[in-house]
Design a protein around this nucleic acid. Structure first.
Length: 463
RNA sequence: GGCGCGUUCGUCUAGCGGCCUAGGACGACAGGUUCUCAACCUGUAAAUCAUGGGUUCAAAUCCCAUACGCGUCACCA
């Protein structure tokens, strides 16, 4: 049985696009194999919690179509799915490790640890816990009996730790390079390392697909699995998304919350499609495909080892492709939903065929089409020296009886000829007069939609 | 600094020892179309496959070293 999970921390405003990328792979692998995809909230760091972060994260993931079979929202056979509600389980497991002599109590104060590390660094040694408490266990248990605060540390074995990663291959790290990791904090909360191993095992997770940032701590997790006598899951460590300067994707250099892209009017299908292309490629070289198709062909073995740069330009191109694939009706629905109810629906729907090839995200609609709903408040060209031209246009237009794009076009062409103006120049003046902008949807069609009275009014005001 | 991972056009990538004088896509540029902008079509530039050594009849592909980048070294995840 394939069971995958993502284990995000609610330490941000929303779900990070990197988390979406790994969620996508986990989701696909579970679905491809008829298994389950689980969302577990890792809220063991109370100081970094962001209020409302969990709700927004879960909601955005849903919106993206990555719905979990088991989660804090829908529950499941291994609930609770929020680590803060599983404290007793971690404590019990940490203590079991003490009994097995694979972990020990430690009562060192933060100050002592701090001084120790400073000293080690000054001596250019690797900062590592010096096992002071391990070497004074009788004394330590005495103090704990008297109410001293304690943590539980893993006794890191002095041997090679090996495991296989689907993406990275065979990995060997020596235990002497690893610290005696704290498993249980003095506030009774587990650290990530304990909680992730205990939960992944208890929740029967078969494949751990997660970001590369976890690769260096995986040996610790392997030690834990072995200490508990549990079977290892399959590990696959994926590359991290990066900023253009190759640093880890960060807020400072890019929008990182998935909802920020959705808010621009990027479709969730396009975001998913784009993210799928980060560090993976379709076996047939396809660039555009839906989630279902991705599920069908995805395999963790095909994940790339190098870290891709997240490029919003290509995302926007992709979204443009999705926009153009939509029917006029469906795009109209999406745009209406995006811009809200303050715009007359009949006008909106008439403008859709004019903009479908011209926008890359829904956010682009209003800047391009605002003139349909209100007259220009400024003009991209100074039209005051062109009153004679406007006069001609006004008279020609007022004689049009059948207010249709081709009629308007014919009359305007004739007017340009009469004025002995080049078409380009003539239509540019007209365009700016009607829309205020040098860039607009096709003019004749736009004027048809605007209607004769409105167009005449917009010319007249310039006379 | 220790440990780990990585390195193919600006970017996403194909490539799995001969099909590679390295293919596709985005972007850029040029042209076509055109009343603008797009869309669409055609074309161009763009990668000494990080560098240096090996292995082999043959290497982008296998091995080693170096450089560079990234990650990680917390009672954060």
């Amino acid at each position: 049985m394939v069971r995958t999970r993502i284990a995000p921390s609610p330490t941000g405003e929303d779900v990070h696009v990197g988390t979406v990328a790994t969620a996508l792979m986990n989701y696909a692998w579970a679905k491809k194999n008829g298994g389950q995809f689980i969302i577990r909230i890792e809220d063991t760091d109370r100081s970094r919690m962001v209020a409302g972060g969990e709700e927004r994260m879960l909601q955005t993931l849903n919106q993206l179509g990555l719905t979990a079979d088991e989660s804090p929202l829908v529950g499941g056979p291994y609930q609770p799915y929020r680590q803060s509600q599983r404290l007793a389980i971690y404590k019990q497991h940490a203590e079991a490790l003490i009994k097995k002599k694979q972990a020990y109590y430690c009562i060192c104060s933060p100050q002592r640890l701090d001084e120790m590390r400073k000293k080690q660094q000054a001596e250019k040694r690797i900062p590592k816990y010096d096992r002071h408490c391990f070497n004074h266990q009788a004394e330590v248990s005495n103090q704990i009996k008297n109410g001293a605060q304690y943590v539980i540390r893993l006794l890191m074995p002095d041997r090679e730790i090996v495991f296989d990663d689907v993406v990275r291959g065979h990995i060997v790290v020596h235990g002497s390079n690893l610290d005696d990791q704290v498993l249980l904090k003095s506030d009774g909360f587990p650290t990530y390392h304990l909680a992730v191993v205990v939960d992944d095992h208890l929740m029967q997770i078969s494949h751990v697909i997660r970001g590369e940032e976890w690769l260096s701590s995986t040996p610790k997790h392997v030690v834990l699995y072995e200490a508990f006598g549990w079977e290892l899951p399959v590990f696959a460590h994926t590359s991290l998304l990066r900023n253009p300067d190759k640093s880890k994707l960060s807020k400072r250099k890019n929008p990182v919350w998935a909802s920020q892209y959705l808010a621009q009017g990027i479709f969730s299908e396009a975001l998913i499609n784009y993210l799928a292309l980060m560090g993976w490629s379709h076996p047939k070289g396809k660039e555009i495909f839906d989630l279902q198709e991705y599920v069908r062909v995805f395999d963790p073995k095909d994940i790339q080892t190098s870290a891709p740069v997240f490029d919003p330009v290509k995302l926007e191109w992709l979204n443009g492709m999705y926009i153009r694939e939509l029917s006029i009706k469906d795009l109209g629905l999406r745009i209406t939903q995006y811009i809200g109810d303050n715009y007359p629906k009949d006008i909106v729907s008439q403008t859709i065929p004019l903009v479908r090839e011209r926008i890359k995200k829904l956010e682009d609609y209003l800047p391009l089409c605002g003139f349909f709903y209100k007259p220009p408040d400024k003009y991209a060209l100074d039209l005051s020296p062109k009153k004679a031209v406007m006069e001609k246009i006004y008279h020609a237009l007022s004689k049009v009886t059948d207010w249709k794009a081709d009629q308007i076009g014919a009359v305007m062409l004739q007017t340009a000829q009469d004025l002995q103006m080049r078409n380009g120049e003539f239509f540019m003046l007209l365009r700016v007069a009607i829309t205020g902008s040098k860039i607009s949807p096709p003019l004749n069609e736009s004027m048809e939609i605007l209607g004769k009275p409105t167009c005449l009014k917009r010319i007249k005001i310039l006379l």
